[in-house]
Nucleic acid binder design. Structure first.
Lengths: 110, 110
DNA sequence: CGAGCATATGAACCGAGAGGTATATACAGG
DNA sequence: CCTGTATATACCTCTCGGTTCATATGCTCG
C-alpha cells in the first residue's frame, strides 16, 4: 500500500510486469513462464493490482491480467528531474532548464 | 545490495535524491532540510553510495554528496518497454490490448 | 594539545513483508 | 452431482531493513 517504488522493489513483481509488457496473461501462464508457485503469483498480482499496476478481467475460471499505465507513468515522472544528469551536454541542459521555467504545457517527444 | 529499485523503495532516500537533484549538499544540510536525524541521513547515504546513486567528496570535516547518473539511468531504461502504454494515443491502445491475447504474434490493428 | 563540530559505524530492537502450507471459492465437463 | 482445474486467501514463520542510542574517527581552531 506504500509507494509504487516499494511495489517495484520486489524482483518477482518486476518479472511479472515485464512479462505483461509483452501481452496480457492468465495467472497460470505467468506461473509456468516464471516458474513460481501459484499462490505466490496470486499474491504478487494482488499487490500489483492494489497499487494500480495491473487490472484483471474474468474469463470463465481464469483471470486475465494486463498492465495499467498510471503508476509506471508516475515513476517515469519522478525520474524527470534527474534526466539532465545523463541526457546530453551543457547546451541541451540549458535548453531543458529554460523550458522548465516556462509554462508547464504539454510534454514533448522524448 | 540488491536492485536499484529496492534502494529507491525508501521514502527518505528518494527525498535525499530529490534534494541532490537541485545541487550537491553536505550531510548537515540534508539533515536540516529534511529534518531527519544525522545518523539516519548518514546510513541512507551509505546505501545510496554503495548502490552508486551518489558519490561524495571530502571537504575538510564535511562530505559533499552529489548525484551519480548510472543507476537512475538504469531505472529509466527498465521503464522503456512500458512507455508505449502511455506515450501513444491511449484509447486506441486499450482496444489493441483487448484483442491482443488471441495471437501471440504482432497483430497490428487492421 | 584539547575542545567541539561533522560524519560514520555498531548493537539492540522492532515491524513489515515474502514464502510456504493449507484451504476456500468458482466454474467446466462428464 | 462429482471431479478436476483455476485462482484467491488466511495463517504462520522467518528474514531483512530502518530507527534509535551510544560511540568512534577525523578535522579545525583557540
Amino acid at each position: 500500500m506504500e509507494s509504487s517504488f516499494a511495489v517495484l522493489a520486489e524482483p518477482n513483481r518486476r518479472a511479472i510486469l515485464r512479462l505483461l509488457a509483452t501481452s496480457e496473461r492468465t495467472v497460470g501462464e505467468i506461473e509456468r513462464r516464471l516458474r513460481m508457485p501459484q499462490t505466490s503469483v496470486s499474491k504478487h498480482l494482488r499487490v500489483l493490482r492494489d497499487a494500480g499496476f495491473v487490472e484483471s478481467r474474468v474469463e470463465a475460471q481464469r483471470r486475465v491480467y494486463q498492465i495499467r499505465a498510471e503508476p509506471l507513468r508516475e515513476v517515469d515522472a519522478w525520474l524527470a528531474p534527474f534526466r539532465r544528469f545523463w541526457e546530453t551536454h551543457v547546451d541541451a541542459l540549458e535548453r531543458h532548464l529554460d523550458r522548465m521555467e516556462q509554462a508547464p504545457k504539454k510534454g514533448r517527444k522524448r
